[in-house]
Amino acid sequence: MEYINDRSLHIGCHLSSSKGFEHMGKEALSIGANTFQFFTRNPRGGKAKDIDQKDVQAFLKLAEENHFAKLVAHAPYTVNPCSKEPKTREFARMIIEDDLNRLEYIPGNYYNFHPGSHVGQGMEIGIEIISDLLNDLIKPDQSTIVLLETMSGKGSEVGSRFEELKAIIDRIQIKDRIGVCMDTCHINDAGYDIVKNLDGVLSEFDEIIGLDKLYAVHINDSLNPVSAHKDRHAKIGEGHIGLEGICQVINHPKLRHLPFILETPNDLNGYQNEITMLRERFLG
């Protein structure tokens, strides 16, 4: 299967990393995917599995032979680098540092994380803490690009507004190793109307952050309407964004070259159906 060319759709889903990279690669190919996302460790945190060098080499060979797009590694949900609790911040530092070191075994991919919640400290302080941590951990010789995920704006989350992500990026010293992953459910819930005004949303992103900093997209429908400030993903076509809204995203000339990752509430068969459906609607 050779999917990657100038006119192809780079699409995958979230896969379990419990059986290793080669297994994930084969699983992705079996459902028509040419990229995938995985948790670097248990999504609730904890120690990561030891790296299996043979597994890594087998995957790298498989990925090269099948022209995989960039992969997206996802930090655990428990990581909150701007918590008001020093112990929680130190946990986030330990996880992110370890993850970035481990990702060099599969070089040149992306590391995505939720910027976190300032928990009453205020947005400016949250942004400062996140930026300081990333400046300590991002190294000039690393091949991995760190992605800040757009958030829905529930509670005291940082990153639901483009201005907040811009403020973090502006503070980062090694700017060619920082970027953004846009989540369709999250930005819908945050108040960006990608169904009725996708061009406007992307223009706003470009003016504030710059589309050159957008490296990946999570494609999810949303159970909630625009500006709900919640975060409940829906299967494609079963939410307020809808199939046509998602198709606008994957076919937009400013986005269509990016890797798209499904995080919809699905099993493997469900992901395969969505990938097939979106490939059929992709104007390649």
Rank of each mutant, 00 (worst) to 15 (best):
residue 3 Y to P: 03
residue 4 I to S: 14
residue 7 R to P: 01
residue 11 I to P: 09
residue 14 H to E: 08
residue 14 H to W: 07
residue 15 L to P: 04
residue 20 G to Y: 09
residue 24 M to A: 12
residue 24 M to D: 12
residue 24 M to T: 08
residue 29 L to N: 08
residue 33 A to D: 09
residue 35 T to A: 02
residue 35 T to S: 11
residue 35 T to Q: 02
residue 37 Q to W: 00
residue 40 T to N: 05
residue 41 R to C: 05
residue 42 N to E: 05
residue 44 R to Q: 13
residue 44 R to L: 12
residue 44 R to G: 02
residue 46 G to N: 02
residue 52 D to W: 09
residue 54 K to S: 14
residue 62 L to T: 03
residue 63 A to W: 01
residue 64 E to C: 11
residue 68 F to A: 09
residue 76 P to T: 09
residue 83 S to A: 13
residue 85 E to K: 15
residue 85 E to V: 15
residue 87 K to S: 14
residue 87 K to D: 14
residue 92 A to E: 04
residue 93 R to F: 12
residue 95 I to H: 10
residue 96 I to F: 03
residue 98 D to E: 14
residue 100 L to Q: 08
residue 100 L to R: 03
residue 101 N to C: 11
residue 102 R to E: 03
residue 103 L to K: 05
residue 104 E to T: 02
residue 107 P to M: 03
residue 109 N to E: 04
residue 121 Q to M: 15
residue 121 Q to C: 07
residue 122 G to H: 10
residue 124 E to F: 06
residue 125 I to N: 12
residue 129 I to F: 07
residue 130 I to A: 11
residue 135 N to R: 11
residue 135 N to I: 10
residue 136 D to M: 13
residue 138 I to W: 02
residue 141 D to E: 15
residue 142 Q to A: 03
residue 143 S to I: 04
residue 152 S to C: 07
residue 157 E to H: 00
residue 161 R to P: 02
residue 161 R to A: 12
residue 164 E to A: 05
residue 165 L to F: 06
residue 166 K to N: 13
residue 169 I to A: 04
residue 171 R to G: 01
residue 172 I to V: 15
residue 173 Q to G: 09
residue 174 I to W: 09
residue 185 C to T: 05
residue 185 C to Y: 03
residue 187 I to Y: 06
residue 188 N to Q: 14
residue 189 D to E: 11
residue 190 A to S: 11
residue 192 Y to H: 01
residue 194 I to S: 07
residue 198 L to Q: 09
residue 200 G to S: 10
residue 200 G to N: 10
residue 201 V to R: 07
residue 203 S to I: 13
residue 206 D to Q: 09
residue 206 D to N: 14
residue 207 E to Q: 15
residue 207 E to I: 11
residue 208 I to G: 00
residue 209 I to S: 02
residue 211 L to T: 00
residue 212 D to Q: 14
residue 219 I to H: 01
residue 219 I to A: 04
residue 224 N to G: 01
residue 226 V to D: 08
residue 229 H to G: 08
residue 230 K to N: 13
residue 232 R to D: 01
residue 233 H to W: 10
residue 235 K to I: 13
residue 241 I to E: 04
residue 241 I to C: 05
residue 242 G to F: 06
residue 244 E to V: 08
residue 245 G to S: 04
residue 246 I to A: 05
residue 254 K to P: 00
residue 261 I to N: 03
residue 262 L to V: 10
residue 264 T to V: 06
residue 271 Y to F: 15
residue 274 E to I: 04
residue 276 T to E: 15
residue 276 T to L: 14
residue 277 M to G: 04
residue 279 R to H: 15
residue 279 R to L: 10
residue 280 E to T: 13
residue 282 F to W: 06
